[in-house]
Each structure stands twice: as structure tokens, then as C-alpha cells.
Design a protein around this nucleic acid. Structure first.
Lengths: 138, 138
DNA sequence: TAATAAATTTGTATCTATTACAATTACGTA
DNA sequence: TACGTAATTGTAATAGATACAAATTTATTA
């Protein structure tokens, strides 16, 4: 399991100065691989960090993004979501409950960046949508 | 080129009652394959339709979505974008200027919906990001 | 250690995309 | 033409995200 010390080290790998807040946010991301929104992160941390500001969570995630420590998912029209796993994998969003799940085991060919498109392509995002099992059964 | 009459017929194919506003919005979408935002559609049409309300543009696009006449692109964090072309193709967003371009000629394998994921997957979206040529050169 | 500079956090205000909703207008049918 | 239904409109409300200045913390230098 991830500890605060490991989160601290993790931040240093991305040249991010590890403040208390940054370490807490990173620890949350490492422990909760649920592609949380800013609000979810804020609500999860604020009980144990009563002075935490939502602006800090925004600032922190934007910094993590700049440094490549997290990936921003553009799959949910409502909120930005964040993923510490920056390796190639897809995502699925349930149009009913809004939860976002990982989809591993996709062919690596899906993540190849196309050539000769006339664009300088840096990244690819593969997003599936539908209904998750929990929602289908209820 | 698409005319108002053709847009009218197009709406009927999707069981959408073709009002003046709906026909104008569909005609714009058919003529401008630029994945426009609500605001872009509104600004383009309002000079020739001074009474047009932005709420109507929202209502109209939501109706088009429900009926499957358009596809909503979730690729731009800022705005929802709409595409009348609902066939399999990818998209590219320039992180500098924000323009969204089509990427055709991708392998059909990319658009296959994965099996045995535990989800009821309805659709897939393939989004690339980077810098477009116009922005690179300037 | 004390003083100072720099970086970070915080809270409030602001901006903007989207939806809610009630009032008005247009449309279709008897 | 008159009436009922559907569509449109404008305003208000909601919510995610950013701007910014004040306050706090951290780092640096004397």
C-alpha cells in the first residue's frame, strides 16, 4: 500500500516540491485509482485537512499535469478527471452512474499515434461509453 | 452543397419535426463540418435569425443527440462539440488553438468494441491531441 | 538566530458553459 | 377561426474552473 513517504518520493521523481497538500493529493491518487474529480479529492481530504482549499486542489492537479505526473481524462462532460496511471490503457464511462473504469488488455496497436496526418500528435485517448453492470442490474 | 430543403429531409429521417430553427441548425452542421460548439452555432446563425435564443440551440442539439442525428464529442474540456458525421472516424484537437479536426483512414479495428469487459459498451471515441500545422508554423 | 525573500496556500470574486423554468409564440387540427 | 399542443425565448440558477490578492509557510542570507 502507498504511504505518505512513498507519495513524497513519487513527487520528487517528477520534480515537484512535496508540500503537505501535494503529498496528500498524490497519496489519494495513488491509493484511489478511481479517476477522481477535483471535488471528490477535495471532499475526501478535507475532513483530515480542514484548512485545505479547493483552489489548492486545482492548483495541485494542474501542476501534476504540467509535470506529467498525472493524466487528465476528457471523458466526462461534467468534470475533469485525473489518472496517475499514465501507461497505455483505455477508459469506460457509465452513462448512468458516471463512474469511470480502466480498460486494460487492449491491443497496443490502438495506442499508436497515426503518421502523415498533417498534425503533430502527442497523445491519444480511447474512451468507451455505455452502462456498467451495477447499473444494468438495478 | 446542402440546402435548407435537404436539411429538412435529413431531420425527417431521424423523426425530428423540422422547425425553422432546427432546420437552420442542421443546415449549419451539414455545411460546416468543423465540430462547432453551441456558441459557434449560435453566433453564426443569429445575424440572419435575430430572435434565435441560445437556449434553443442547446435544446436543439440535445434533441439531435437523443435521436442520433449528431454525435457529441468529448474532446475539448471547455465546450461540448457536435458532429453530424456519425460514422467511424477519429478526432484531433490542437492544444494551442483548440480547433478539432477529423482523422479518417484509421484502421477499422480501432473502432471495434471490446468484449468481455464486464460492461455493456455502446460506443467508442478516439481522440488525439497535439499541435496543428498552423500553430506550429506561427 | 533573525531578517528577508520566495513559494505556496487560501478565500473570495469572477467567468462561463449548461440547465431549469415560466412566459410567450407558433403550429396543427377540429 | 378557435383551441390545444409543441416549440421557442429570456431570465435566473447551477456548477466547474480560473484570477487574484492576502495570508501563511518555507527557504535563504546575513
Amino acid at each position: 500500500m502507498y504511504t505518505s513517504i512513498q507519495s513524497h518520493r513519487y513527487l520528487l521523481q517528477f520534480s515537484i516540491k512535496p508540500s503537505v497538500q501535494r503529498t496528500a493529493v498524490m497519496e489519494y491518487l495513488l491509493k484511489n485509482r478511481t479517476h477522481p474529480t477535483i471535488d471528490e479529492i477535495y471532499l475526501a481530504l478535507s475532513p483530515s485537512m480542514p484548512t485545505l482549499s479547493k483552489t489548492t486542489v486545482y492548483n495541485t492537479l494542474n501542476l501534476f499535469l504540467e509535470r506529467g505526473a498525472v493524466q487528465q481524462l476528457v471523458i466526462d462532460e461534467k468534470n475533469a478527471r485525473y489518472d496517475v496511471d499514465t501507461t497505455s490503457h483505455g477508459h469506460f464511462i457509465c452513462k448512468n452512474c458516471g463512474k469511470v473504469y480502466d480498460i486494460f488488455n487492449l491491443s497496443p496497436a490502438l495506442f499508436e499515434l497515426p503518421k502523415n496526418t498533417g498534425f503533430n500528435i502527442h497523445s491519444v485517448e480511447i474512451s468507451y461509453a455505455g452502462i456498467c453492470n451495477e447499473c444494468r442490474e438495478s
